[in-house]
Design a protein around this nucleic acid. Structure first.
Lengths: 349, 349
DNA sequence: CGCTCCTTTGGTACCGGTTACATAAACCGG
DNA sequence: CCGGTTTATGTAACCGGTACCAAAGGAGCG
């Protein structure tokens, strides 16, 4: 008895300094914490009159339940994470937005993590995994064994634009069919000698696009380049290879792994007096906003939808509605603009 | 004694089902939880030999400390939030990226919330505030009294591109000087009749730009329009007003509150056969990626830096390094491109 | 050899909620 | 008027860490 009383005193003393807790509310309303908790959660095992007293106390003390305490007791975070290499591209921003939108609707907060090629990325992702109920992981941000580790801890993972991993869901966009339609369109416009700009090792998407590109050329009986022109993902990377392309003798068209490469390349070529599509055609991938204004032929991907789909897949796994992995593939669409106009090198000179 | 033993048994039984906790590690290593906790936190009050045993146990049991338990005990989330209206624009994406980058460096996770003009935005923001140590709030996403409420709960807030609120830090970009330099440049190019596209009520930024615009015109003794052409923030909004502008008689130049409006307007005008800058000049604001490719004259804002600055301001408040509010203003820069070329309406016709 | 002082470690009360279980009050037909 | 439910509430043991305080063991010193 004596010790219990002392305990109560201690508690009151500390809580006067700190924020108001459920015990303060209970004392104020003259009920137990259990009753307050029930009232908070809308349980129907609370007498209306009692509920009113509790509500009044909550109001009066300006009580806000602690998410932390709640999460700890419920053993759930009510939050999802998403990991991507860099938000700087318009591409990732769109995906994140789609993800956030759906997650918010499902009552889950969203934690973002951009790895920026930091060497500590793996640890950061593991740390993030400890804060969420589910995790969406983009492309080549983190090693396979880290993903496996996260899965083993019981946190569902959905991979985006990445090769499948045992036990994880995945969402990606269709690449081979798209690459084929790009090539077919270029062929129809009279282009023959085609180069591919991008590094297949950097991403599954690029690898698939490169494979589709080669396949379509082979199918048409046209010269297939035996390797890509290596480049990263940014405008600078595209600009950097312009010189080498010119030196090697320009092809009819450069198919780029994404829009930023294509746009950067186009600008760098223009600086050398080479016109697109007059002297060389260029195509991109993603259909970012700038592609519209630059008149870039490209492949449109449903990025927002991809993010949203990822959030839905995760939700199903988290709530236990589904246990076997699912792998969704979203369709893409060729968008023809002036950057790949009919082959007209002769006419132009 | 008896009850204590029973308690221990119960605990073991439950934890066998659930994930491995610090108590499992303690038992396995033959030490107390306090020692494990010290070892985890790198305290130097642990004997090297003991630390080794603990590390071995952690390794063996594949123990990962629960972020929730830790946060609850430490009374901190180690996470920051950021609220913005919509990520769809390139503008917000950049700011969020800058914010995340700095926050991550400071060891804080980032929770994002896009309000999408949802009517439940206020509640969502309040909920978010309960999950973070500090919150960055963008423009017109949430009511002043909600911000006040959050501040009162002891969560520091930094406002971005928004009118100051008592007790909150803020970061914004310079608008009046920028508007003046835009107008001065246009005047130098021979433009006189200027319209302003954007809704000053929608955002503090727009209001300041509009004010700066009027001030500069008045200063130069040129006709000052008495109201703006109202529009939102998207390309569609810009396109929508094209017809009205034409019907009212085109001005020499349309100064737009952001790039998306300017770009949307330009495209819509082109569809009506009106050329930029030949028939009418157009300027934007933000310098998004598409603006470069569209040749749009605009005002560059350091968006990434704004996000980073917000994270830094928050960090200082959270760690208690600073208690008086700070209000930072970042400088902007006029970027002249061909969309505002010299006034040449006559020459053109 | 006894006595401080310091290093290491253990016990346990928190952090702020949820919820199983026990209990008490109210209601019901017989 | 009584035993059996049903309804409403209280008690306390969790969730998984942190850190204060006390205690044990060992070293240094007179």
């Amino acid at each position: 008895m004596d010790s219990a009383e002392q305990k109560g005193t201690q508690r009151r003393r500390t809580s006067s300094r700190a924020s108001v807790t459920i015990r303060d509310v209970a004392r104020h309303a003259g009920v137990s914490v259990a009753t307050v908790s029930r009232a908070l959660r809308g349980s129907d095992l609370v007498h209306p009159a009692t509920r009113e007293r509790v509500d009044a106390a909550i109001e009066e003390l300006r009580f806000t339940p602690s998410q932390l305490g709640r999460s700890l007791a419920e053993r759930r975070h009510a939050a999802n994470g998403i990991v991507f290499p860099d938000l700087s591209g318009p591409y990732y921003a769109e995906v994140v937005l789609g993800y956030e939108e759906v997650a918010a609707t499902l009552g889950r907060s969203v934690l973002i993590l951009s790895t920026h090629n930091r060497e500590s990325a793996d640890d950061m992702v593991l740390e993030l995994a400890g804060r969420v109920d589910g995790l969406a992981v983009f492309g080549r941000t983190v090693h396979d064994d880290v993903v496996a580790e996260i899965l083993q801890r019981g946190v569902p993972v959905v991979l985006m634009a990445r090769t499948e991993i045992e036990g994880a869901d995945s969402v990606r966009t269709e690449n081979v069919v798209a690459a084929t339609s790009v090539v077919d369109h270029l062929l129809a416009d009279g282009h023959r000698r085609m180069a591919f700009l991008g590094d297949p090792v950097e991403s599954t998407d690029v690898a698939e696009r490169w494979a589709g590109f080669r396949g379509a050329l082979a199918q048409a009986g046209v010269d297939v380049p035996d390797r890509t022109v290596l480049a990263g993902f940014k405008e600078d990377d595209g600009a950097r290879v312009a010189g080498a392309l010119i030196a090697d003798g320009l092809p009819d068209v450069v198919v780029c792994a994404n829009d930023e490469l294509a746009l950067g390349l186009t600008v760098a070529l223009a600086e050398e007096g080479i016109e697109v599509p007059g002297d060389v055609a260029v195509t991109g991938w993603d259909d970012v906003m700038a592609a519209r204004y630059a008149g870039l032929t490209t492949v449109r991907q449903p990025m927002r939808e991809m993010g949203g789909r990822a959030a839905q897949l995760l939700d199903a796994r988290i709530s236990g509605d589904r246990s076997e992995p699912r792998h969704d593939v979203l369709t893409t669409q060729l968008v023809v603009r002036r950057s790949c106009g009919p082959h007209s090198k002769e006419a132009h000179r």
